[in-house]
Design a protein around this nucleic acid. Structure first.
Lengths: 331, 331
DNA sequence: TTGTTTTAGTAAATCGTTTTAGTAATCAAG
DNA sequence: CTTGATTACTAAAACGATTTACTAAAACAA
């Protein structure tokens, strides 16, 4: 049932129907009676405008592209939840694409999304080098023209985390760094190092180990902790890159006969759903992932709808320390 | 840069360009030299066909709709991963929509996706009453015309789970049922009950409790177990609806002073990433979620591309028992 | 030489909307 | 009685591709 058929059925032109159905101001001159005829015929014959045709004509698709490393890594899913909550309110849809850390996809995805006529792109934890379209990068750290970065206050996050461990009396703190491909890896590491130095407990380089591989499983944290333990260097606490790796680290510690938190305190990052229910419950630095997604979506939509809204370069959100059972005072 | 502009630039018609660029058989009569001119001009001027225009004309969007309860529940994300792995190979994209168990959205989403001209819909753990479009329902249990259900062999899953607990000597087994809105709740419960009865250890109705609420957090399993414990009825094992609720249940058990698995064995379902690294590591009945997503996508694409492929009504996948540390012999 | 086929294209219709630029008919004012 | 505005519409041109149905010239066959 196209507009043309509906028009034929009513003995009116598609023009008239379009004006009336879209509530255009020009429709002011169309008598109420005709308008009613049109509306009720549309309803009865179940007329549904073809979104492609409309989008082609008005040059707006009300569709965004979303690029994530992987859907099931918890982090991305939470951000997407926030994104979707905003978009669905505004009648926008989005197409998701995962880059799986593959450089060919990283290169190509923005282009193929643009080819699909998305109006803008939200990237999550994804390195971005240029912007074909209005873009917001969640956890982006590069300053790029036309790209708004939504980032955590990393300095504060490190202060909260290291501060907490310091207050508990920990002086030899191990760190599990993120993979190089994670946007936050570098800044997280720097801020942690600075926070430790500021307290005169510099992080021993032999107490730093990096996650290896790209599985979203605790396995990587497990391996990292095994390596750390194998070095024989002493430490009483570990600051993990995220909750997932903290969970893996705890497993490795237990296997090595170290109790958590009695022998070693473990501090996570993110506050995923499972954190509160892990055993022991994870003390963690919470990122407001849902809010970051919302903020990203709101910012991008503002830019698309408002007239020539300038893109803010950076939007910062605040972390929060959630103290649970995986950290305790150092003996 | 539109086809028209490119054509003008080459002094050729859009027809010729279209034929050549799409490798149409009709282009056989166009000399190689002209073809080369066209291809290289397209490359140099970075011509990108407008997907809307093309889709409108050929009546194919290469886009699917995906309906899930919520993105961050682990289950959906894993299925989506499988879906995406197939779609991206075939040049398809998809639009995700979450229904959040809201009946208005459940009703409306298929329609708004259809309005967006998706070619088919994949629903995940979502009740479906009719099919506007070719559709595959992952964990669907209703027989609906035009809908293929991808389901787990629930009978076998129950046999594996109950069989495992039975062999360990458990005779009084508690069950945490899923919420009514979960597609698998009813069949899961029935098959578990049957498997228990077949071993002459019928499930005591006072040992059954249902998850309440729709958060994707272990909290629901925690509450359910608290209720179960508060009844004072004895049990030596519990079969949880999924890993998330099993994790919550373990927390409640520990708080009540019951050790897992020494005092109570806990059996999960799904085998999410965290299961292996929980403490204790979760024994669980694994669903091949990634494969289910792949299968759903493959089936739907087959139907869309092959000529009049009939839709299979049901596709069954096999569960697998993963024995870890949360179950042990009954004393 | 004539007729047919092949070669190398093109004009125009089409997909289903929106939007611009009208047009005829009625009405009010001067 | 003319002019100008208002009312109630519509024709046709977009949007940017694809596709059908041609044409005109060259090559080939009889």
């Amino acid at each position: 049932m196209s507009l043309k058929e509906l028009a034929a059925h009513l003995n009116l032109s598609t023009t008239t129907l379009s004006l009336v159905l879209n509530g255009s101001p020009t429709a002011g001159s169309i008598p109420q009676e005709t308008q009613k005829r049109i509306f009720s015929a549309a309803r009865e014959l179940n007329y549904r405008p073809n979104y492609l045709a409309r989008s082609l004509r008005v040059q707006r698709t009300h569709t965004l592209g979303v690029i994530v490393p992987e859907l099931s890594d918890g982090y991305s899913a939470m951000v997407l939840n926030g994104v979707e909550s905003i978009l669905s309110d505004q009648g926008f849809f989005y197409m998701t694409a995962s880059h799986l850390h593959r450089s060919d996809l990283l290169e190509r995805l923005p282009q193929v999304l643009a080819d699909r006529q998305v109006e803008g792109i939200i990237a999550v934890d994804t390195p971005v080098r240029f912007a074909l379209l209005p873009m917001v990068n969640v956890s982006g750290h590069d300053e790029i023209d036309g790209v708004t970065n939504v980032i955590l206050d990393h300095w504060k996050a490190a202060e909260l985390g290291i501060g907490h461990l310091f207050e508990l009396g920990h002086r030899r703190i191990a760190v599990i760094k993120g993979q190089d491909f994670s946007s936050d890896t570098e800044i997280r590491w720097q801020t942690i190092r600075d926070a430790a130095c500021a307290r005169a407990i510099p992080i021993d380089e032999r107490l730093v180990e990096q996650l290896k591989g790209d599985s979203p499983s605790p396995e990587l944290g497990y391996s990292a902790m095994k390596t750390l333990l194998s070095r024989g260097e002493k430490f009483s606490a570990v600051f993990a890159f995220n909750d997932i790796s903290a969970i893996g680290a705890i497993r490795a510690l237990r296997e090595a006969g170290r109790r958590v938190p009695e022998d070693v305190s473990v501090l996570g990052f993110d506050d995923i759903y499972a954190a509160a229910y892990h055993n022991p419950a994870l003390t963690t630095v919470k990122q407001p992932l849902f809010e970051m997604g919302k903020l990203a979506a709101e910012t991008l939509l503002d830019r698309l709808t408002a007239t020539n809204q300038p893109a803010p370069a950076v939007l910062t959100v605040e972390p929060q320390l959630i103290v649970r059972g995986s950290t305790a005072a150092c003996e």
